[in-house]
């Protein structure tokens, strides 16, 4: 089940498309559902599919195709680090290593307290700002040198 608020948001996404093209809102609807639930369970995907009148497996195709959907539970803070070449040239990989050491986890792992999940990301379209990382899919952090990373982690409560 999704909250009324989430359904309202989904409705306004549906309204962006022609009346017979509700399925177009599936990416936004899954994103909204994920923001509310933290991750996309089978039930959540089925709910979204039902709401948009599309086959559940078609919604699952979408949820599993795009990287930013989480099909497994993640920590309260999902940190995605870009390690692609342009970022790597300016410390992207080292920033990821720094985070791994600080959090004591590897990519696709979650800290024992359920607070942090670390992910390796592909190009975020911000290569000039490397190292770049994305928190919970919505907050982009640029020029993340060690002190900045320390500060970010300290802010996360």
């Amino acid at each position: 089940m999704l909250s009324q608020e989430a359904l309202k948001q989904i409705d306004s996404e549906i309204a962006k498309y022609p009346a017979d093209q509700k399925q177009s809102a599936v990416m936004a609807a899954l994103a909204i559902a994920q923001m509310e639930k933290g991750w996309l369970s089978t039930e959540t995907i089925e709910t979204v599919a039902g709401y948009l009148g599309m086959p559940p497996v078609a919604a699952y195709e979408v949820a599993s195709f795009y990287n930013m959907y989480d099909l497994q539970p993640v920590g309260r803070y999902k940190i995605t680090v870009c390690t692609n070449l342009p970022c790597a040239l300016s410390g992207g990989v080292h920033a990821a290593d720094y985070l791994k050491r600080k959090l004591g986890i590897g990519f696709n792992e979650t800290t024992a307290d359920g607070k942090f999940t670390l992910k390796e990301g592909e190009c975020m379209g911000a290569c000039g700002d490397a190292p770049v990382l994305l928190v919970n899919n919505v907050r982009m952090c640029s020029f993340m040198q060690p002190e900045a990373i320390d500060k970010l982690l300290a802010e996360c409560t």
Binding site: K16, A28, Y69, G121, E122
Partner: peptide
């Protein structure tokens, strides 16, 4: 309208 991607190059 704006449509957002969600992580697929």
């Amino acid at each position: 309208q704006a449509h957002h991607g969600y992580g697929a190059y």
